[in-house]
């Protein structure tokens, strides 16, 4: 493995990614490398933290009179959430959910690096879905990003997985096509690719190959 030279090349690009000025192909190369390199992941996290915190240095300025009142008049209650989480029952349910989440710290930690890694491309993911096997076993995460071009980032985390997953993209018109491959070693791997279709046209991402059981994430 040429990890050392790989790190040197990727290390050059990390500030660009953190500052949000890396080109699409550079970002893809960086994220492909990050899957197998905790040191570069930590470095990107630190650089991104610096970039994010720069914004907090901006001076506070009192907005014009009536700013808050005008804003509050614009608010419409988010209807979907109200329907799903009606009133007091919602708060009780949320408390239970938060307690459950706190109790499953290992699971949350297992995906935390993946989430952070994808987050640090400094764009909001349009969608984030679990990659799961047919029996429901969690196998990783799929992140969809907008922008120009839109792109997809995948992380695989499946004990004992090793080899290659071929990635197929299923669009809303029902077509399926191969868009690349994710190398997986020692149960983990990650990979990103620019897409030539808007992300809202993506229905599903399917992974199949020698690395392990077939995995899929539905974006429908």
């Amino acid at each position: 493995m040429d990890d050392r030279s790989g790190c040197a090349e990727i290390g050059e690009l990390l500030p660009d990614v953190a500052a949000g000025v890396a080109a699409g192909d550079e970002r893809a190369r960086v994220f492909a490398h990050l899957g197998g390199c905790p040191a570069c992941r930590r470095e990107l996290a630190a650089l991104s933290h610096v970039a994010d915190e720069l914004l907090t240095l901006a001076p506070a300025v009192t907005p014009p009179a009536g700013f808050a009142a005008s804003l509050m008049r614009r608010l419409a209650p988010p209807p979907r959430r109200r329907r799903w989480w009606p009133g007091r029952a919602a708060r009780v349910a949320l408390t239970v959910l938060l307690a459950a989440v706190a109790g499953s710290g290992a699971t949350m930690r297992a995906t935390a690096d993946d989430r952070r890694e994808a987050h640090h491309c400094r764009e909001r993911p349009l969608a984030e879905r679990a990659l799961a096997a047919a029996d429901g076993t969690a196998g990783g995460r799929a992140f969809g990003y907008g922008g120009s071009p839109p792109w997809l980032f995948l992380t695989v985390a499946l004990p004992a997985a090793g080899g290659v997953y071929d990635v197929h993209l299923v669009t809303r018109d029902g077509r399926s096509r191969a868009i690349g491959a994710v190398p997986v070693s020692a149960g983990g791997g990650s990979w990103g690719v620019a897409l030539d279709v808007p992300f809202d046209q993506v229905a599903e991402v399917r992974l199949a190959g020698s690395a392990g059981p077939p995995l899929a994430a539905a974006f429908g």
Binding site: A58, V61, F67, A68, M72
Partner: peptide
């Protein structure tokens, strides 16, 4: 996240100067 406008009002009061300050900058 639960649609509570009172929470939003408090949130706006707390951060409006920071948000407006950055936007203006």
């Amino acid at each position: 996240a639960l649609g509570d406008t009172d929470a939003m009002a408090a949130f706006v009061r707390r951060f409006q100067a920071r948000v407006f300050g950055l936007a203006l900058s």
